[in-house]
């Protein structure tokens, strides 16, 4: 191989990738600057403001007379706690059943599970709303949390099934010889071994429920229970939008997802790719 040529192409690759990364991140960089700008400065094409308006953050935080953003963050995090707990626990249980146990109609139920991934949510949303409405559960977190306790979503079950299938069966067999039941095998062998995949489930659940604006708009109506997303929407609907403050709060609203992502980014991308698309 021509090493000189290779070195040259490496440099161009790096150059191109750096430019491309910057292009992708450009809106975000602009966003950070704009969140510190005065309203008049918003129209200038500069990235960074002349004087950083930190008050955008403090004023935006308290934009609503009744509640501060702290309240909305607390609401959302409380909901997230249950969502993540439900998703992680039940998806692991269901996935173990599909991956390791032999029961009648297993193949049938698994195909149904995969089919539900393709079902548009809009088809079920009206009767679900009516159901929750009849049970008096509209304007509570139950409709948002409950689905996560039913296996956490077909995608996660599928992901974990693929992961469990990759674990050698010898471990199960050895435990069985030692007298462990299927429940014991799940608790002591499989559950600890699938922890990396469960981290993926937790992160995805966290970010997707954070962004599930449709569900939140549908089921939460009193300001007291608003999530961060709904609070931002309330902000937009004001008579005159304070863009600096709004952009500052929007930026804050994505920080939990960003922190979660960076804490566990290795698992995050691995998780998507272990779904085993081929085969």
């Amino acid at each position: 191989m021509n090493t000189l040529h290779r070195g040259y192409s490496k440099v161009t690759n790096h150059l191109f990738l750096t430019c491309f990364s910057l292009l992708m991140l450009y809106p975000v960089i602009w966003w950070v600057g704009a969140s510190l700008k005065k309203t008049e400065e918003m129209r200038l094409p500069t990235i960074w403001p002349e004087v950083a308006m930190w008050s955008n953050y403090s004023k935006g935080w308290n934009f609503s007379a009744e509640f501060s953003f702290g309240h909305f963050f607390a609401n959302t995090l409380m909901m997230e706690f249950w969502n993540v707990l439900g998703g992680v626990l039940t998806s692991a249980i269901v996935a173990y059943g599909f991956a390791r146990l032999h029961f009648k109609l297993r193949g049938f139920w698994f195909s149904i599970l995969l089919l539900t991934m393709m079902l548009p949510g809009q088809v079920t949303i009206v009767p679900q709303y009516i159901l929750y409405n009849n049970l008096g559960l509209v304007d509570s977190y139950i409709p948002l949390i409950l689905p996560h306790f039913f296996g956490g979503g077909a995608f996660f079950v599928f992901l974990l099934v693929q992961f469990i299938r990759g674990i050698p069966r010898d471990l199960d067999e050895a435990a069985k010889i030692d007298g462990a039941s299927v429940y014991g095998i799940f608790l002591r062998i499989i559950f600890p071994l699938i922890k990396p995949a469960l981290v993926t489930v937790a992160i995805f659940t966290f970010i997707w429920s954070w962004d599930d604006f449709f569900g939140q708009v549908l089921y939460l109506s009193s300001v007291e229970k608003f999530t961060v997303g709904l609070a931002l929407r309330m902000f937009i609907d004001q008579f005159e939008i304070q863009w600096g403050q709004l952009l500052a709060m929007s930026l804050l609203s994505i920080t939990p997802s960003v922190i979660v992502f960076f804490l566990a980014q290795k698992h995050f991308v691995e998780g998507i790719s272990t779904t085993g698309l081929k085969g």
Partner: peptide, 15 residues
Amino acid sequence: NLAGYVFISPWLIGF
């Protein structure tokens, strides 16, 4: 069969 359905029951009920 029982164990299988016990494990998939969260999903099945939700479904």
